[in-house]
Write a protein that binds this DNA or RNA. Structure first.
Length: 321
DNA sequence: ACTCTGCTTCCAGACGTA
DNA sequence: TGAAGCAGAGT
DNA sequence: TACGTCC
């Protein structure tokens, strides 16, 4: 997921690209957020006795709980969020997705084993690893957002790519995410720890792409190749090449083709049928919606609809305004 | 000495109350 | 799943 | 800040 150790590389090699701040700095700002990633995190985190929260019909409500409160929190701070939902994953990602499916299947077996053994702790641990965002979770959240007056976008493929596209077009200020590949997709601004900065003692960190490039001493094309060398979701990387050597090689040879011409292939095994160029194309020109295809409008919440949905249908208590 | 790998461990939300 | 810290092996 | 609860 994301780009392996990119956050650390930037912190070490281009610290000037990171600005720490507080949520007040984002008053009035439009921020794009990866909705599918958020839902996934809520399903993992919002649990009681090893199970997701559910209403009396047995429907999961963890994702609604998380998204509702997080969105309220942002709006209270003057932030205008726009949620972006994942579309079909690109072909290039299928290997990565297979791996994830395998891990989930494994976790399911471990979970049943733990259940039989009555090992609550192990059950809890493995249950989290079986989490998968379903069509229903997504539809629930879209309904909630409609009632809250918060816009969302259905990305053709990767949500992070669509988020970056919104930034590039000036439709939003930045991407609020933990996933560093928003930078690789060309987002000028990436904001980490946007929502949970006060609860934990994590400061909000804003990464500026221009300053990342300046600090590393490379251009954007070179940066994309650097990210591929570090390790991305779309293809393998070269064993034995980590942060330091990757940056050195890019600075010396400027692109992967030239690196491959000069590198000692006895020392460093190049992956078979290495499709780094296709990964690069994906970062450079991802399938995204642009222009009039995206309309972002923040509306007043439909309070009646919200209450009908959250309280009457989903069984929430009537606490919040 | 430096750099990468692989292993381990801790952790994943947001709220209100005490 | 990642991120951080550590031991160990390769360059 | 730690802890229990939300559904």
């Amino acid at each position: 997921m994301g780009i392996h150790t990119l956050a650390k590389l930037i912190a070490d090699q281009a610290p000037g690209a990171i600005k720490e701040g507080e949520i007040k700095n984002y008053f009035g700002r439009k921020i794009a957020i990866d909705a599918s990633m958020s839902i996934y995190q809520f399903l993992i985190a919002v649990r009681q006795n090893g199970e997701n929260l559910t209403n009396e019909n047995g429907e999961t409500t963890s994702h609604l709980m998380g998204m509702f409160y997080r969105t309220i929190r942002m709006v209270e701070n003057g932030i205008k969020p726009v949620y972006v939902f994942d579309g079909k994953p690109p072909q290039m990602k299928s290997k990565e997705l297979e791996k994830r499916l395998e891990r989930r299947t494994e976790a399911e077996a471990e979970m049943s084993k733990a259940a039989e053994a009555g090992d609550e702790e192990a059950f809890d641990k493995f249950a989290r690893r079986t989490v998968k965002v379903t069509r229903e979770h997504v539809e629930d959240c879209k309904r909630l957002l409609k009632f809250m007056g918060i816009p969302y976008v259905d990305a053709p493929t990767e949500a992070e790519a669509q988020c970056a596209a919104l930034v590039k077009e000036g439709k939003v200020y930045g991407v609020g995410t933990e996933d560093m590949d928003a930078l690789t997709f060309g987002s000028d601004v990436l904001i980490r720890h946007l929502t949970f900065s006060e609860a934990r003692k994590m400061p909000i960190r804003e990464y500026t792409l221009a300053k990342v490039l300046q600090g590393l001493g490379i251009n954007f094309e070179e940066f994309m190749d650097l990210c591929i060398l570090l390790g991305c979701d779309y293809c393998d990387s070269i064993k034995g090449i980590g942060q330091k050597r990757a940056l050195d090689l890019i600075k010396q040879y400027r692109n992967i083709e030239t690196i491959l011409k000069h590198i000692d292939t006895k020392k460093y095994g190049i992956p078979e049928d290495w499709a780094f160029d296709q990964a690069r194309a994906l970062f450079k020109e991802p399938d995204v919606l642009t222009g009039d295809a995206v309309e972002l409008k923040w509306n007043e919440p439909d309070e009646e609809g919200l209450i009908e949905y959250m309280v009457n249908q989903k069984g929430f208590q009537m606490n919040k305004q």
